[in-house]
């Protein structure tokens, strides 16, 4: 369970989060959606302690973020950041191996290698394992970072706009994989998404943000309505039900 309490955050003088209270239950996939600048990514990076909490509290599985040691938290929560800048020249397999770092702190064992192999296979990176990161496409790189987070083998997995730069096939593959992780391995997945339709198709719960606050939350069917789209996103896109789930007509 991720518990967020009275979270305020500003960057420079601009307030980004204005009192967020949110409980994300264990298991399943929760998608954070909202217009640009709503504070989704900031919220995610605060939970993942990529930013320092200015005021408010966050607890992940009972661990208070900011107080629990970074090493311990790395075994509870993995994050796939939006922007990744690797300065070293790495092969795909090397990158994914880093996922095991929180567990072995530099001395990988047999079990670690096995998990890395499984991650490479699961994310269809086996054929690319010996390729350097600068020799693969943006989508493949994205997948490699997702595999890195997967190999970290944590009960909580946070992804910050993982579908950026992905074509429809790659985006669907990645979302389906995340769905599998939630269903088969019981992981709690929190994902920031831009595309409401992907959120509606794959997530169990949606959290809608606007102006640094939670505007709505619930199942896709409950949350995604003509009125919500109008109020939160400020555009008149119609919502239709297709196969029992809402689809926004763009």
């Amino acid at each position: 369970m991720i518990e967020i309490e009275a979270l305020h955050h500003s960057i420079g003088k601009a307030p980004i989060l204005n009192g967020v209270d949110l409980v994300i239950p264990e298991g399943g996939m929760t998608a954070l959606i909202g217009p640009n600048g709503a504070g989704k990514s900031t919220l995610l990076s605060l939970v993942a302690r990529l930013r320092k909490i200015q005021s408010g509290h966050i607890r992940v599985a009972g661990h208070a973020v900011g107080q629990v040691s970074d090493q311990d938290l790395a075994r509870v929560l993995a994050v796939m950041p939006q922007e990744t800048r690797v300065s070293a020249r790495l092969r795909v397999a090397d990158l994914v191996s880093f996922g095991r770092y929180p567990w072995h702190r530099g001395r990988p064992g047999k079990a670690d290698h096995a998990i890395v192999d499984r991650a490479l296979e699961r994310f269809s990176l086996d054929p690319l394992r010996e390729r350097f990161l600068d020799e693969i496409s943006g989508g493949q790189k994205q997948r490699a970072f997702a595999a890195l987070a997967y190999a970290q083998d944590t009960p909580y997995l946070l992804l910050d706009e993982p579908l950026n730069n992905l074509d429809i096939a790659a985006a669907r593959d990645l979302m389906r994989l995340m769905r599998e992780l939630a269903d088969e391995e019981g992981r709690t997945i929190v994902i920031v998404l831009h595309d409401i339709n992907y959120a509606a198709a794959f997530a169990d719960r949606l959290v809608v943000m606007k102006d640094g606050r939670i505007a709505a939350q619930g199942t896709p069917g409950d949350v995604i309505t003509d009125t919500m789209i109008g109020e939160v996103f400020g555009t008149q896109a119609g919502v239709r039900m297709v196969d029992g789930r809402p689809v926004v007509i763009v």
Binding site: S45, D70, A78, T84, R85, Y101, Q152
Partner: peptide, 21 residues
């Protein structure tokens, strides 16, 4: 510091995520 420096080369966000701020 050698192993920790390896992680640092992944970039700030990824290093933090792996417990190495």
């Amino acid at each position: 510091l050698r192993h920790r420096m390896d992680v640092l080369a992944l970039g700030d966000a990824a290093a933090t995520g792996l417990g190495e701020p």
